[in-house]
Each structure stands twice: as structure tokens, then as C-alpha cells.
Design a binder for these strands. Structure first.
Length: 262
DNA sequence: ATGGTGGATGCTCCA
């Protein structure tokens, strides 16, 4: 089973590249973040024409939005509101005996201080709520969390650990909290299983650099986590870095995992 | 310290 996750940054602006990725990698399941589209105008027909019969999505005008585009039927699907805000940052689908959660965690604004920046407070609250939600789950279960978590947790997940310590996405407050979320859910970091430390791994490069490839000031903001029953069945993890160099790219690149799903 | 770019929207917000 080929599972692909991508913060596409606008499903309409990116549709040509979404089509290209589908033709290149032929994923069975496609998880998108930042679709930026209302449900009533979601391009259902276009995905049906590409061979994806089963769709589940949750979007809003202009901002946020997550989607699951699948060749296989779901035995269950749904979502949760986080921090009591209905801002379309999470959906889940159940396929076979595995629940897959698609997350778009708040970016958190510019100032890493919850007392002056409500966006950062939202991010921290969201993560704390995730930690509590996961704590109640049995450690033996078949579960995946993937998506844009907007945190680069390890020193090797950013171009300069020292220079980003006070930059939102890599502050100790966020990286400690993400670590706690991972462990409270008994998850394993699939990307780091395949690309261990000290290799630098990035999934995002800002639009605001003239030559992203040469300056290479990236961050690993996108993640795929799985419980141990799933992680031992993963045969491949691929970061599709070339997609950052395509015409009209997203600032994030797609991540592909191959799993013999239970 | 600042500004650099892009998507969706509508004279601006968010990343």
C-alpha cells in the first residue's frame, strides 16, 4: 500500500502537480493538508476521473483544510475539533484494521511566546490536547499519524539548530512537546527509521529564498508516525524533494511510505 | 532589523 502525504498549499493552485504526483507515484492513499477549499466546491469529479473512488475531506474558505483521497473504501472516518475551534485541521480514516490521522497543526505565528502571541498559544494548546488524547489509548493498536505538524523536532531536522532555537517550529518548548506527543501515543518516527541521525532531512523550504536548493535552508515539518505493529511492516520511505523544484511548487514536498497495512 | 514569495480573497490575512 502506497501512502502519500503532502501539504499542497491550495488544492486548486496545485491540481496540476497533484495529478503529476499521482501519475508518477500511483499512491493508493493520498493525504493532503492546506487544501484551502470549502467542502461544497471540492474537486470530487476530478479525483474520481483519476481513479480515486473514496474521498473524505473537511475544508473551509481560504485557510487550513485536510483531505483523504483513496482507492480503497473506509470502514470508518471522522474528525475532531481541537482546542474547541472548528478550523479543519484533522480528519481520520480507518482502512482495514488501521486508523490513519491526517493533521495540520497550527503554524504558530512569529513570536514564540504564548502570553503575547495567540497563534503560538493555539499551537501549544493543540499539542497538549493531542498528548492527553493519546495518553488514554492502549499501546498495542494499529494507528498512524501523518501530515504537517509544523515542528522540526531534532537538530538534524533544520539547516541550523543554533540559528533556529528561538524561531517558531524549532523552539525547545515545541520540540519537547512534540516528543511528548510522540511518546504518549507510543509512536515511532518512520522518516527517521529510514533516514537516521546524523543525516539532515527536510520537507519544507521557504518560498522567500531565491535559490532554495543552493541555500538549502530547509526544515522537516512533515511527519509520518506509526505504532509498532505498523512500523515493522514499512518497506519504503521516500521524500520527494524534486517536487520543490517543479513549476508552481508547494513550499512543502510530498512524502511517500509503503506499508503492508494490517 | 528587515524583507523576501505565494495562495485565496477582495482593498488583507496567513504561512
Amino acid at each position: 500500500m502506497k501512502i502519500l502525504t503532502w501539504n499542497c498549499n491550495g488544492i486548486r493552485a496545485r491540481f496540476p502537480l497533484i495529478k503529476k504526483i499521482i501519475e508518477l507515484e500511483k499512491p493508493d492513499l493520498l493525504f493532503l493538508q492546506e487544501t484551502k477549499i470549502e467542502d461544497k466546491i471540492f474537486p470530487e469529479k476530478e479525483f474520481h476521473n483519476l481513479g480515486y473512488e473514496f474521498l473524505f475531506y473537511r475544508g473551509e474558505k481560504s485557510y487550513n483544510g485536510v483531505a483523504c483521497i483513496s482507492k480503497m473504501p473506509f470502514s470508518d472516518c471522522g474528525y475532531r475539533n481541537w482546542h474547541n475551534i472548528n478550523d479543519c485541521r484533522h480528519i481520520f480514516v480507518k482502512i482495514k484494521k488501521t486508523t490513519i490521522h491526517n493533521f495540520y497543526i497550527p503554524a504558530g505565528g512569529d513570536i514564540p511566546d504564548t502570553s503575547v502571541n495567540s497563534k503560538f498559544l493555539h499551537k501549544i494548546s493543540f499539542l497538549r490536547e493531542m498528548e492527553n488524547w493519546l495518553r488514554d489509548k492502549p499501546s498495542k493498536r494499529n494507528e498512524i499519524i501523518l501530515g504537517d505538524l509544523n515542528i522540526a523536532p531534532l537538530a538534524e531536522d533544520v539547516w541550523s539548530h543554533k540559528q533556529l532555537l528561538n524561531v517558531v517550529s524549532h523552539t525547545p518548548q515545541e520540540t519537547d512537546l512534540l516528543h511528548d506527543v510522540l511518546h504518549s501515543g507510543s509512536f515511532e518516527d518512520l522518516i527517521r527509521q529510514f533516514f537516521p541521525i546524523p543525516e539532515k532531512v527536510f520537507s519544507w523550504w521557504s518560498y522567500r529564498s531565491k535559490d532554495w536548493r543552493h541555500s538549502d535552508r530547509g526544515r522537516r515539518l512533515d511527519h509520518v508516525w506509526a505504532t509498532s505493529s505498523i512500523s515493522k511492516r514499512v518497506s519504503k520511505v521516500k521524500i520527494l524533494k524534486d517536487a520543490r523544484g517543479w513549476e508552481k511548487p508547494s513550499d512543502h514536498v510530498p512524502i511517500l511510505v509503503e506499508i503492508d497495512l494490517v
